[in-house]
Design a protein around this nucleic acid. Structure first.
Length: 88
DNA sequence: TAGTTGACCGGAA
DNA sequence: ATTCCGGCCAACT
């Protein structure tokens, strides 16, 4: 009865659970999804996400910087995080 | 099926 | 502090 989830599905589930006011790096998400070396792939998946229930704006680079946001650009992403009380 | 691209990352220059 | 490079993986052509 293995609920075989694809890497993409796992990533989406993980990001969906990131609480307001908190962030995760692409690397952390990849590791939690079972592929520690797939940070880049996580970025690819996030870039394709347009589902509002998946807070992809809470996923940032491991250097603490932001790379992109398909819904308003990095400017909007930064604003959203500040609004949630995230320290940048 | 094979080759290219990109919202990554860590180390090196 | 910034730029560059190789490696990794999913999506796309």
């Amino acid at each position: 009865m293995g609920m075989n989830k694809t890497f993409t599905q796992k990533v989406q589930d993980i990001v969906r659970k990131i609480p307001r006011g908190k962030t995760m790096t692409y690397k952390q998400v990849a590791t939690k999804a079972g592929s520690p070396h797939a940070a880049r792939a996580v970025g690819t998946i996030m870039s394709h996400n347009f589902d509002p229930s998946i807070p992809c704006h809470r996923v940032i680079g491991s250097d603490g910087k932001m790379h992109g946001y398909n819904r308003g650009g990095v400017g909007a992403k930064r604003t959203k995080l500040l609004e949630e009380g995230v320290k940048l």
